[in-house]
Nucleic acid binder design. Sequence first.
DNA 1: CGACTCTCCTGCTGGC
DNA 2: TGCCAGCAGGAGAGTC
Length: 272
Amino acid sequence: MPELPEVECVRRSLSWVIGERITSVDIRRPDVVTGDCSPNGLLRGQCVVGLRRHGKQLALVSEKGTVVVHLGMTGTLLTVQHGHEGWQQDRHVHLRWRTGKGACVIFRDPRRFGGVWALKDESALSDHWRLLGPDALTITTGQLIPRLGATRQPIKSALLDQRVLAGVGNIYAVEALHRAGIHPMSVSRHLDARDVQRLARILHHILREAIRAGGTTLRDYTDSLGVKGGYALRHRVYGRGGLPCKKCKTPLADIRLAGRSTVYCGSCQVLL
DNA sequence: CGACTCTCCTGCTGGC
DNA sequence: TGCCAGCAGGAGAGTC
C-alpha cells in the first residue's frame, strides 16, 4: 500500500517520462478522474516537464496542465513498453498515457481508493496541495510541534491525518511510534518538544530507509518498473500483533485505532 | 468545531 | 473442494 516511500519510488522509477510528449490518452474509467476528464485535460499533446511529489500524491507537470495521481491502497503507475499489450485485458487499468516513443504509463487500481485530478496548471497544484500539511520527509520539529499541540487526537490518528503532515500511512505510523517509544493512544498535545523532536527524527530516518529499500511490498506493490520493495523485512511491529516485541520480547498488542489495526508494545511504548 | 464512525471497493483468507 | 463472511486500508462524508 503506497505511502510516502512507495510513491517516491514510483516517482523515481518514472523519471524517464520527463521530456516525453503525451501523444494520446485512453480513458477507460472517467469516474476515477476529478476535473476535466477529456484527453486534453489529461495532458494529451503536452510535454512532461516534471514529476513532483507531496506526501502520497504524485504530480505529472506539463507546460500547460498538471495531473495529480493518488494511489490510494492498491493503485500503481506502471511503465509499459511498446509491444507488451497484456494490460489491455486487465479490467483494473483505468487510464493510459502513450508517449512519443511508444512506451506507456498506465494507472491501475483494483480497489479504486485512488484517483486522478486534472488541474489547469501548476498554480492549481499549489492550491490543491495547500490542503495538505508539510511533507513528512522534510517536516521540521518546529513545524510539527504546533501541529501536534493543536489537537487532542491520539498521536497515531494525528500522524495519519494528512492535514497535519503529509505522507504517513498506517504502516509507517506504527513503525515510527514503536521506535520512538510512544504509545499510539498518547494525546498528541501531551508530547513535549523532546518527544516531538525524537518522533520527527525517527520519521525522517524510517522514511529514508524505506525509500532506500524500495518501499514496502506486502503483496502487490511495485514501482513503475515492476520492482518490489524490501522494507517489509525491516518492520518491527506492523503485521506482528501477538508476536514478541523485538526490543523487550513482550507480546505486541493489536488494537483498532482510527479504524485501523494498530500494533504496539505495551511495555516499550509509554502513554503520554 | 473537533473528534469520532461510516462508506467506498475488491481480492484474499480462513472457517465450515 | 467450494462457498461466503470478514478483513484490509486512505480519505471524504456524515454524525454527535
